[in-house]
C-alpha cells in the first residue's frame, strides 16, 4: 500500500476515534452533491429501433407532445425526463442512498448505495423511475443500474418498456458532471443506445425553485 493509502486509513481510523469520543467530525462532502444544470446532450449515434418500436414511436405523438400532455395534467414524470427536461437537478449524497430532486413535475430518484437487498422483481410494481442501485467505483465515479421501469416515453422519443435497463456513470470533473447513459431494451433498441448528459454546477448558494402544478390552471406552474 502506498503512502496515500496509509494516510486514508489513518484518517478513517482517526475519524472513528473522534466518533467514539463524541467529538464532531465533518464528513467530506462528495463532489457529486449540489445543484446541476444540463448544458449539453451528446450521442455518438442515433437510437436504432427494432421495427416494432419504430412503429410504436410513429404512432406515439412526438415526445414533446406526449410529455406536455402529461405535464399539463401535473402527472409526475420519470426517466429520462428527470435527467433531461425537469430543470436543474439537486443531488444529495447520503451514506446509504443518493437522492436526485428536480423542479418540474417529476418524481424524486432514489439510488440505493449501501447494498440494500434488491426487491423481488417478480412482485415489483414498475414505475417511471424504476429501482436504482448504485456503487462507487474509486472515489469519483458512481455507477447506477436501473430496472423496473414502467411503460412510457424513453430517450429520443423511443418507447420505454418494462424490459428496459439503464446504466449510468456519474463522474465529476471540476464543476462539470458527465452522466454517461446506456439504455438496453431488446423490445426497443437494436443495440444499446448510448448518450452523455453534461451538466454545469450551479453556485453554492443556489436555491431550488418550487414548481407548484395545478391542473385547474392547465398545468401552469405558479408560486
Amino acid at each position: 500500500m502506498n503512502d496515500h493509502g496509509n494516510v486514508r486509513i489513518f484518517a478513517a481510523t482517526l475519524a472513528g476515534l473522534f466518533l467514539l469520543a463524541g467529538l464532531p467530525v465533518r464528513a467530506a462532502q462528495s463532489p457529486l452533491s449540489g445543484f446541476w444544470k444540463l448544458v449539453k446532450r451528446e450521442a455518438a449515434a442515433p437510437a436504432e429501433l427494432v421495427p416494432a418500436a419504430a412503429a410504436a414511436r410513429a404512432k406515439l405523438k412526438a415526445r414533446d407532445d406526449v410529455d406536455v400532455e402529461d405535464v399539463r395534467w401535473c402527472v409526475q414524470q420519470g426517466l429520462p425526463y428527470i435527467m433531461e427536461n425537469a430543470g436543474p437537478i439537486d443531488i444529495i449524497v447520503g451514506p446509504k442512498e443518493i437522492a436526485i430532486l428536480e423542479e418540474k413535475v417529476a418524481l424524486p430518484r432514489h439510488i440505493y448505495t449501501a447494498g440494500q437487498p434488491h426487491p423481488d422483481m417478480t412482485i415489483f410494481d414498475n414505475t417511471p423511475v424504476g429501482y436504482s442501485s448504485g456503487r462507487w467505483q474509486g472515489d469519483d465515479e458512481l455507477i447506477v443500474d436501473t430496472v423496473g421501469l414502467s411503460a412510457g416515453v424513453g430517450p429520443s422519443n423511443a418507447p420505454r418498456t418494462e424490459s428496459a435497463k439503464i446504466s449510468e456513470t456519474f463522474k465529476v470533473v471540476g464543476d462539470t458532471l458527465k452522466v454517461s447513459t446506456t439504455w438496453t431494451d431488446p423490445a426497443t433498441f437494436r443495440r444499446p443506445y448510448h448518450y452523455t448528459l453534461v451538466y454545469q454546477r450551479l453556485p453554492a448558494n443556489f436555491t431550488a425553485e418550487e414548481a407548484y402544478c395545478d391542473p385547474r390552471a392547465n398545468g401552469v406552474a405558479h408560486p
Partner: peptide, 18 residues
C-alpha cells in the same frame, strides 16, 4: 430521509414537492 453535509431532504411517497 437523505442527508449530506450540504442539504437534507425528506421525501414523502405521495404526490408532493421536493
Amino acid at each position: 430521509i437523505v442527508q449530506d453535509a450540504r442539504e437534507t431532504t425528506i421525501m414523502y411517497e405521495n404526490h408532493s414537492l421536493p
